[in-house]
Every structure is written in structure tokens, then in C-alpha cells.
Design a protein around this nucleic acid. Structure first.
Lengths: 232, 232
DNA sequence: GAAAAAATCAATCACTTGATTGAATCAGTC
DNA sequence: GACTGATTCAATCAAGTGATTGATTTTTTC
């Protein structure tokens, strides 16, 4: 019970001494517990116990339970969104002629997410993000929305241009398959770990590759109004 | 508040008079509320209020909250599993020569689920099933497992035979994409309803078709060791 | 080293949760 | 009409929930 509080959160935690400051310890404990039991399945008391802080500390630093969740999302999502924005911007720039490639757009969006599985605590947040994405609680939904909406719109717009062979309805249905696949993979109920056997390190690479092959093929499949051959 | 208790559950509820018996009303209310707020987001008290029954009734009929969830699953899943078993068995019979077709296997598994969206309360249960599929609560996971495991294994075995172009690892990764897509579609956070506009009736047909196109293409995509052309 | 700010603490509030009890009511049967 | 099993009822339990308070300690700042 004593050595569980030293889980690092990000670079901040890595530089912090022995057990880190209280705020950092709270974030680390909350992240681990949210990933394991979901947002509503974790009480503030259990977080405080694992972080070894006082009852009022969470409210002091984050006001609400929701504020704590939001802080976790901001900590993790901000750098990822920056990377996504850069890569999407690069794709928008590069396409001097015609539409961007489906696979490239998908990779620009998915890779920054899957890659962070390798970072310390990244796997935990992956699962939090996936669980919260389908959480019925409006407060949780709002946090997810605020975190992903802007970049998600840009991704959608670019992917749309990469799929001229689909009409709007087809495109949006297939995009839901993309989100579903991503989410399910990030949920990781131990299935993924089982599949990988011992080579847990290569996890993200394999997952990314397999996911991209599947989704690219699905998006590239001809639509109802597709006359000739589909792209690439 | 008074007319909300008459939501039908299935044929049993349809034949029940005015507001139905208590047990049926409880099931109907629970199904609606679980679909809206998730399993953990609903208290027994709110169910009892909507069903207009006494506090102890739920424990009388279902023992636990978990027993209530299990009853809902059994009520809905049993007939669906029968249909799935029949269709999978037909596919196993028909393949006199070679492997079954990917699309046919997928359809046999997915259609019985999506189709039931049209039944009264079917949409609600679809969402319950999807939410529970990623619920971190072990009790909930057990209910889902008990409901789907047997048929799911049979589906997996048959789909595997339809994908000789994939090695085991590729196959299982892609299968996760299938489950993810199905789950996300059944979650239905209002996105699907939005996409369909006013023609809510055709919902299941369109969803099924789009889903099948995407998943079939994804599974049919060549694997790393695929030499020639992938199956039609 | 005193004043101010930040952080930590124990104690508790008001409320909700799932579950249980034992009495009261109903329905059907002989 | 009494007996019996199936329901329904009000009342309540023990435990857990997020949140708040006000005092105390630690750290920073001048």
C-alpha cells in the first residue's frame, strides 16, 4: 500500500522526488483507478487513500470530481492534440494535387493516440478515454467533447475529402466504425494484452498497423454510387 | 409520471392489460432507464418510481440489482441467440466446398442483433448491451459474458475459416474492430438517430448494410502473408 | 523573523445507495 | 369461510457518496 503512490503521471511526475507532490499523486492515483473501474466506479475516498492525501485535498486542487477528470484529460490530450494538428496540417499542405490518401489521414489521427500507450500511464489514460467516450453521464460526455471536438472536426473534414467515392450518408456510417474500432481497442479489457503475449512493448506498433489496415480497407471500399475503381 | 409505466417489454407485455403486472413493469422501466443512464447510473429507487411499485418488489422478483439486469439480458438475448445459432448452423452446412464467405458469416451474426432494434424496446436493449460490453464492473461483465460467449465462439470459429488469408494475430485484431464497430453503433448516443433524419423506421436496415460493407472490406483486406488476390 | 499565502488536517454534513424486515393484503383452494 | 401461498406495503438499516467547514500547519515573501 505504501509504494503504490509513486506512479508517475508525466514528465512532471518523473522529475518530482520520491512520492511527488500531493497534486501529482492525486492525478496519478485517479488515473490508475479511473482506468480500472471507470469514472463512476471510483470514489474520491479511494483516490485519496491511494494517493495518501487528506479528504479535502481533491476539492482544494480540483474543486469537483469532474474537475479532477478534466485535469487528467487536459494533461494527456493537450500534447496529443498538438501532434494531431501538426500532422493534419501537413497533410492539408501536401495535397497540391487532388485528394489526400485515406490511409495517411487515418494514420495522422490515430497514431498520436496509439503511440502514447507506450508512455508511462498512457495505457491507463487510453482506457479512461475509451470508457468515458461511451459514458452516459452528461458531465463526462462534456469533458470528452471539449477535449476532442475541435481536432475531430478537422480530421473529419480531411477524411471526407479523401473519400470522394462515398456519399455523405455512407461516409458518416463508416466513420462511426472508425471511432468504434479505435474505442474498443483502447478499452483493452485484457484482450489486447493477451493477444500480444510477452512482447508488451511492441504493443502500440502492432495495434496501430493492424487497425490501419482494417480501417483503410473499410473506408476504401466502393460506395453505392462508385462507378469505377476505388482509390489507391 | 403516470403514463410512463405502460411501456411494453416484449410479447408478454403486449398481451398484458393496461399497465401490466408488476414484474413486467419493473423490467420495462429498468430497461428504459438502464439504456438512458447505464447500469450503475440508475438506482433501484428510480426504477421503482417509474414502474410504480414498492421498494421491496425488485428484491422480491429479482433478488439483486444484478438479477434484474440478468433477467433483461435473458429476455432479450435468448431468442436472438437462437436465431444466430440457426443461421450459423446453416452456413456450416452449406459450405460443401471450401470456406464460407466473410460477408455471409458477418451477416449471420450481426443481422439478428441489428434487426431487433425495430422491436419495441429493442433499441433500448441494444444500447444496454453496448454499454455493458465495456462496463468495468465484474458483475456486469459476467452477465455479458454468460449471454454471448457460446454463440460468439461459434461465430469466431466460422469467421476464422472464412479468412484463410490472415494469420491468427491479424485475424484477432480485425475481429476486435468488428466488435468495436458493432458496439459503437449499438451505443447510439443520438448520432445514429441524427444521421437517419426522419426515417427512423429504416434505421436497422441502413445500419446493417453500411456496417456489413465496411466490416467485410476490412476483413477481406490482404494479410501480410497473403500472396495473391483476396477472396471475393 | 513577522506577515501572507499555500497546503494539510480532522470532523462532519446532507444525501443516496442496495438491501432487509415484518406486518398487511390479495388470490386461489379445499 | 378458513387456510395458504403469493404479493405488496411502509419503515428502516448500515454503508458509502461528494462536498464543506474551520482550525492548523507548512511554505513563501518581504
Amino acid at each position: 500500500m505504501a509504494q503504490t503512490g509513486s506512479r508517475a503521471v508525466d514528465e512532471k511526475a518523473a522529475s518530482a522526488g520520491e512520492s511527488g507532490e500531493a497534486k501529482t499523486r492525486i492525478l496519478a492515483a485517479a488515473e490508475r483507478l479511473f482506468a480500472e473501474h471507470g469514472y463512476s466506479g471510483v470514489s474520491l475516498r479511494s483516490i485519496m487513500a491511494e494517493a495518501e492525501v487528506n479528504t479535502a485535498s481533491i476539492h482544494y486542487y480540483f474543486r469537483h470530481k469532474e474537475g479532477l477528470l478534466r485535469a487528467i484529460f487536459e494533461m494527456r490530450v493537450t500534447p496529443m492534440n498538438e501532434e494531431r494538428q501538426e500532422r493534419l496540417a501537413a497533410l492539408e499542405r501536401d495535397r497540391s494535387e487532388g485528394a489526400p490518401e485515406v490511409g495517411a489521414v487515418l494514420r495522422a489521427f490515430i497514431e498520436p493516440a496509439i503511440r502514447r500507450t507506450r508512455a508511462k500511464g498512457g495505457q491507463a489514460f487510453n482506457r479512461i478515454s475509451a470508457l468515458c467516450s461511451v459514458d452516459p453521464d452528461p458531465a463526462v460526455r462534456q469533458v470528452v467533447f471539449d477535449s476532442y471536438d475541435t481536432v475531430s472536426r478537422r480530421f473529419t473534414a480531411l477524411l471526407r475529402k479523401a473519400c470522394p467515392h462515398l456519399d455523405d450518408e455512407e461516409f458518416y456510417w463508416r466513420q462511426h466504425c472508425i471511432y468504434g474500432s479505435m474505442m474498443y481497442m483502447r478499452t483493452d479489457n485484457g484482450r489486447v494484452a493477451y493477444l500480444l503475449g510477452d512482447r508488451g512493448a511492441g504493443h502500440s506498433e502492432v495495434a496501430l498497423q493492424q487497425l490501419l489496415v482494417f480501417l483503410t480497407a473499410g473506408m476504401a471500399a466502393p460506395g453505392a454510387n462508385t462507378a469505377g475503381v476505388a482509390g489507391a
